[in-house]
Nucleic acid binder design. Structure first.
Length: 886
RNA sequence: GGAGGCAUAGCUCAGUUGGUUAGAGCGCAUGCUUGACAUGCAUGAGGUCAUUGGUUCAACUCCAAUUGUCUCCACCA
C-alpha cells in the first residue's frame, strides 16, 4: 500500500497542515462533481469584510460551517461551500481614508473619487488575499473556484437588477425624511447602523417669551439646545389643563427672534417636565412626525459636518458642541436659561466610527419595508425558515414587525452607485438597468448619475443568489438555491439575515435558506467581548501557529452550544492540543503494531468479547454523533467522540488488546489488528469534520479498507445494527468493573502497582470471567494470577487472609492481609452497608408507591426492581464479609 | 418601556424530547516512567443543580413568581 507509512514520533501540526490543504485544493475535493445527482447541501459563507483580517469570531463561524459542510460531503451530498468577501462600504472607506491621512496626509477629496477608489481596490485585493489565506489555514473546505466578492461584476449586476425591480414596483423611493446622519463619515445611516450608548449630559430648561404678553414665558427643556435654531413650534397636549390655554399663542425664539406657534399634539406627555415641548422637525424623529401632522416648516440648522449653518445666526460655522456651549452661555446672560440639570441619556452613535449621530432631514433613498416584511415574517412563522436555536425567531419576528423603511443611500464613494440618472436640462430622473446617456424625456445628453452609493448590506442581502450567478439562470442557481443552512452570529440577524430573507423571497420567490444556525460571540478568558479598544483580541493565526488549526477548531467547537457565547482561553487550547496529541499517539501505537496491509473487519464468530464490546461502544458513539450533528449540536457531537476516543478506545480497548498484540502471528493477533484499525479509522472519520488535518494525516498512514484516497471523500460512519453485541458488552462491562474495583481498593490501601497479588473471583457469572480475561487482570489490576469460582471454600481463601471487594457481579478476594487494618476494614464495610441500606430504602419506597408502579413505563419500573435486587445482593455480600471478619 | 439569555463542582462549561448514584476540562489530593502518549496512567475529594411555589407516580429538566446577572430592541422632549 503506497500510502502506508510511519507516523513521526511527535505530533507537529505545522509539519503537515499546509501541505495537506494544498493537496486538497490541487485535487479539487472541494469543488462538487457536477455529475453527482445526490441531494444538494449548499452554504454561502457570511462574507468577511475586507477591512482587515479574520478574528476569533470568524474562526468560530467558519469552523462551524466547515464541520457541517464536511459532514454532509462525507455523507455523499452534492456539497458546495461558496466563499467570498464583503466590500463593507463605510468600514472599508474609513480604513482607507485613515491610512491615506496617516501615510500621505491626504483626504479622499484631495485624490478625487476615481483615484480614491483605485486605492480602495488595492486595499481590497490585499485584504481579500489575506482573508482567503486565513480561511485556508483554518482548513475551511470552500470551493475556491466559486469565490465571490459583493462588489464584483456579477454581484454588481445583481444589485442593479434588484434596485430597478424594487423601484419599478414602487418599493424603492426617494424622499426627504429624517435619517441618522454621521457627521464624521458624512453619510446617512440606516436605523440598524446606529448603536445607542449611555452618556452623561444635561437638561437645559429654557424659557421662550410669549408674544404680546410681556413677562410671560413658556418653559421647555432640551438636551440639545443648539437645535432650537430649527424650532418651528412648541407643542402641548390638548388635554393638559395646565397648558391648554397656551395653544394658539405665538412665542418668540430667544437669540433668534423668529416667531413660532404653540400647537396641540397628543405626542406630548402630560406631567412630564413642564408639559411643553420644543418642536424641531429637521432634527428629531418624533418632532419630524409632529411637524408633518401640523404642516410645520422644516428648518435644518446644520451642515453635513455638524457645524451650524446660517439659521444659527452668529453661531454659524461653529461645531454643534461649540455652538451649544456658546448658546447656553448667552441664554444664561440674557436670562432665558431657567436651569440646568444633569441627565444621562441614550445617545445614538455610528456603528463604524462611534461619532454621535445627528438626526437630520435629508434627501435619501428608501426601501419600503411593509410589503417586504409581510412574507418575510410568514416564512419564519410557518417554519419554512427555522432558527436554530428556535428562540432567535422571536427576536427576528419582533424586529420585523416593527421595522421602519430602510434608508439605503450612503454619501460615500466606495459602493454600488445608485442607478439613477438625472437630466441636466429638464431634471428628469431615470432609473435604469443600463447606463443612461440620453434623457428619455428631452433627449439631452447632459446626464449625471446619482452620486450616492448603496448601503453595503443591500448587496449582502442578495448574497445567497448573487453568488450563484443570478440574475442569469445558471445551473448553480437551479441546483443550489435555496441554500441549506446559514451559519452566523446573533449580532447580525437584523443587518443581514432579515434582509436576505425578504430579498430572497422578493427576487427568487423562495426563501434563501431553510435553517439559520446561530452561534454566540467568542469572549476572552474573563468573559469580556474581544475588541480592538480593549486590546484583548486573539489572532487565530497566532493560535494556529502555536497549537495547530485542528486544536483551534476543537477548542472552538467543544462545549459550544448553539446561540450561547463562549470564552476562549489558553487553557482550552491546551486541552484541545492534548487531545490531538492523544489521538496522534494512540494512532502511532496502533500503527507500529500492524503487520496487515489491509484492514477488514473479521467475522463475528472470530471476534473476542472485548472486540464486540468496543464495536458496540463505537456503534453507539456513531449514532450519538450523527444525531447530534443532524440537530446542530456540534459540541455534543464532539464530546461524544472525545469520550469514546480517550476513555473507551485509548484507556480501555488499546490496553485490552496489548496481550494479543504481543502474540505475533496468532489468529487473535490478526483479529486485534483488524479491529483496532477498523475502530481507529472510524474515529478518524467521525472526527474529520472537526479536525480535518490530523485525521487526514493519520488516515493516510493506516491500512484501512476504504476505497477513497482521502478522508475528505470517505463515507461518514453510520450506525450499524450488525455491530451491536449487547451480550458480550455486558460481559466485558463486568470485567472492567472488577478491574476498577480492584484498582480502587489497592489505591485506598496505598499498594504500589509493582506488588502483585492473586485475584480470587467469586461470581455467578463465570462465563464473563473466562480464562482469556485473566490477562486483563494481570495487566490492568496488578494480578499475579487469577482464580474464578462460583464459591471458594474457606480453606482456599478466607476473610482473615484477604481483602474483600464486593461488586455487582462478583466478590473479589485479594490475599493481602498484612495490609489490612481489621478495624478500618470493618468500618469501611459498615459504611458500605449503611449506604446500601439507604439506597434500598429509597428504591423500595419508590416501588411501593402505587402511582409509580402503575403509571411509570414498565422498563423504568423493571430497572428499579433490578436495582433493588442488585443492592440486596450486594448488601448480603457485605454482611457476609463482616461476618467473616469477626 | 418591551423582549430574550444565563444562574449546575474551586474555575470554565456540557447535560439532546422529565426516569440509574447529575458529567467533562482545568485545578486540587494520593500513587505510578504499567510496551504510544508526563501534552501521560491509575484513584479520589468536591454539587441541597439561585430562591419559592406549581404540574407529575417522578423535576437539574416543564410552568409561574422572586432575586442576581448579561444582552438586544425602542427611546420622553
Amino acid at each position: 500500500m503506497d500510502q502506508y507509512k510511519e507516523l513521526p514520533k511527535t505530533y507537529n501540526p505545522a509539519e503537515f497542515e499546509d501541505r495537506i490543504y494544498a493537496e486538497w485544493c490541487e485535487k479539487g475535493y472541494f469543488t462538487p462533481d457536477p455529475k453527482n445527482n445526490a441531494e444538494h447541501f449548499s452554504v454561502v459563507i457570511p462574507p468577511p469584510n475586507v477591512t482587515g483580517q479574520l478574528h476569533m469570531g470568524h474562526a468560530l463561524d467558519e469552523t462551524l460551517q466547515d464541520i457541517l459542510v464536511r459532514y454532509k460531503r462525507m455523507q455523499g451530498y452534492n456539497t458546495v461551500w461558496i466563499p467570498g468577501t464583503d466590500h463593507a462600504g463605510i468600514a472599508t472607506q474609513i480604513k482607507v481614508e485613515e491610512r491615506l491621512r496617516e501615510e500621505e496626509g491626504l483626504t479622499r477629496y484631495d485624490l478625487g473619487r476615481e483615484k480614491f477608489l483605485e486605492r480602495v481596490w488595492q486595499w481590497k485585493d490585499k485584504y481579500e488575499a489575506r482573508i482567503t489565506g486565513q480561511l485556508k489555514k483554518l482548513g475551511a473546505s470552500c470551493d475556491w473556484t466559486r469565490q465571490r466578492f459583493t462588489f464584483d461584476e456579477g454581484c454588481s449586476r445583481a444589485v442593479r437588477e434588484v434596485f430597478v425591480n424594487l423601484y419599478e414596483k414602487g418599493l424603492i423611493y426617494r424622499g426627504n425624511r429624517i435619517i441618522n446622519w454621521c457627521p464624521h463619515c458624512i453619510t446617512a445611516l440606516s436605523d440598524a447602523e446606529v448603536e445607542y450608548s449611555e452618556q452623561a449630559g444635561f437638561f437645559w430648561h429654557i424659557r421662550y417669551p410669549i408674544k404680546g404678553e410681556e413677562g410671560h414665558y413658556v418653559e421647555v427643556a432640551t438636551t440639545r439646545p443648539e437645535t432650537m435654531f430649527g424650532d418651528t413650534a412648541v407643542a402641548v397636549n390638548p388635554n393638559d389643563e395646565k397648558n391648554a390655554h397656551l395653544i394658539g399663542k405665538t412665542l418668540i425664539l430667544p437669540m433668534v427672534g423668529r416667531e413660532i406657534p404653540v400647537i396641540a399634539d397628543e405626542y406630548v406627555e402630560i406631567g412630564f417636565g413642564t408639559g411643553c415641548v420644543k418642536i424641531t422637525p429637521a432634527h428629531d424623529p418624533n418632532d419630524f412626525l409632529v411637524g408633518q401632522r401640523h404642516n410645520l416648516p422644516i428648518i435644518k440648522v446644520m451642515n453635513d459636518d455638524a457645524t451650524i449653518n446660517a439659521y444659527g445666526g452668529k453661531y454659524e460655522g461653529m461645531d454643534r458642541y461649540a455652538a451649544r456651549k456658546a448658546l447656553v452661555a448667552d441664554l444664561e446672560t440674557e436670562g432665558y436659561l431657567v436651569g440646568t440639570e444633569p441627565h444621562t441619556h441614550n445617545v445614538g452613535t455610528c456603528y463604524r466610527c462611534r461619532t454621535t449621530v445627528e438626526p437630520i432631514t435629508s434627501d435619501q433613498w428608501f426601501v419600503k419595508m411593509e410589503p417586504l416584511a409581510k412574507p418575510a415574517l410568514e416564512v419564519v412563522k410557518n417554519g419554512k425558515v427555522k432558527f436554530e436555536p428556535e428562540r432567535f425567531s422571536k427576536i427576528y419576528i419582533n424586529w420585523m414587525e416593527n421595522v421602519h423603511d430602510w434608508c439605503i443611500s450612503r454619501q460615500l464613494w466606495w459602493g454600488h452607485r445608485i442607478p439613477a440618472f438625472y437630466c441636466g436640462d429638464c431634471g428628469e430622473m431615470t432609473v435604469s438597468r443600463e447606463d443612461v446617456c440620453k434623457c428619455p424625456k428631452c433627449g439631452s445628453v447632459k446626464i449625471t448619475q446619482e452620486s450616492d452609493v448603496l448601503d453595503t448590506w443591500f448587496s449582502s442581502a442578495l448574497w445567497p443568489f448573487s453568488t450563484l450567478g443570478w440574475p442569469e439562470k445558471t445551473a448553480d442557481l437551479a441546483r443550489y438555491y435555496p441554500t441549506s443552512v446559514l451559519v452566523t452570529g446573533y449580532d447580525i440577524i437584523f443587518f443581514w439575515v432579515a434582509r436576505m430573507i425578504f430579498s430572497g423571497l422578493e427576487q427568487m420567490g423562495e426563501e434563501p435558506f431553510h435553517t439559520v444556525f446561530i452561534h454566540g460571540l467568542v469572549r476572552d478568558a474573563q468573559g469580556r467581548k474581544m475588541s480592538k479598544s480593549l486590546g484583548n483580541g486573539i489572532d487565530p493565526l497566532e493560535v494556529i501557529e502555536k497549537y495547530g488549526a485542528d486544536a483551534l477548531r476543537f477548542a472552538l467547537s467543544t462545549g459550544n452550544s448553539p446561540g450561547n457565547d463562549m470564552r476562549f482561553s489558553d487553557e482550552k487550547m491546551e486541552a484541545a492540543r492534548n487531545f490531538a496529541n492523544k489521538l496522534w499517539n494512540a494512532s502511532r501505537f496502533v500503527r507500529m503494531n500492524l503487520t496487515i496491509d489491509r484492514a477488514t473487519l473479521p467475522a463475528a464468530q472470530d471476534l473476542a468479547p472485548e472486540d464486540k464490546w468496543i464495536l458496540t461502544q463505537y456503534n453507539q458513539t456513531v449514532a450519538a454523533v450523527t444525531s447530534a450533528l443532524d440537530s446542530y449540536e456540534v459540541g455534543v457531537a464532539l464530546s461524544a467522540i472525545y469520550d469514546f476516543t480517550w476513555d473507551v478506545f485509548c484507556d480501555w480497548y488499546i490496553e485490552l488488546t496489548k496481550s494479543r498484540l504481543s502474540e505475533a502471528g496468532t489468529p487473535g493477533n490478526l483479529v486485534a489488528q483488524n479491529v483496532l484499525c477498523h475502530v481507529l479509522t472510524g474515529i478518524l472519520k467521525l472526527l474529520h469534520p472537526f479536525m480535518p488535518f490530523i485525521t487526514e494525516e493519520i488516515y493516510r498512514a493506516l491500512p484501512h479498507s476504504d476505497a477513497s484516497e482521502s478522508i475528505v471523500l470517505a463515507r461518514y460512519p453510520a450506525a450499524d445494527a450488525a455491530l451491536d453485541f449487547p451480550e458480550e458488552s455486558q460481559r466485558m462491562r463486568r470485567v472492567i468493573d472488577a478491574i476498577k474495583a480492584i484498582r480502587l481498593r489497592r489505591n485506598e490501601m496505598n499498594v504500589v502497582p509493582s506488588r502483585k497479588a492473586k485475584v480470587y473471583l467469586e461470581t455467578r457469572y463465570p462465563e464473563s470471567f473466562g480464562e482469556a480475561t485473566y490477562a486483563f487482570f494481570r495487566r490492568l489490576a496488578s494480578a499475579s494470577d487469577v482464580a474464578v469460582s462460583g464459591a471458594f471454600s474457606p480453606d482456599v481463601i478466607s476473610a482473615d487472609n484477604a481483602v474483600q471487594i464486593i461488586t455487582d457481579s462478583a466478590t473479589i478476594y485479594l490475599p493481602m492481609s498484612d495490609l489490612v487494618d481489621t478495624e478500618k476494614e470493618r468500618a469501611r464495610l459498615e459504611g458500605e452497608a449503611a449506604k446500601l441500606l439507604s439506597e434500598i430504602d429509597r428504591v423500595s419506597k419508590k416501588l411501593s408507591n402505587e402511582g409509580f408502579v402503575s403509571k411509570a413505563p414498565a422498563a423504568v419500573v423493571d430497572a428499579e426492581r433490578a436495582k433493588l435486587a442488585r443492592y440486596e445482593e450486594n448488601l448480603a455480600g457485605v454482611k457476609a464479609a463482616l461476618e467473616k471478619l469477626k
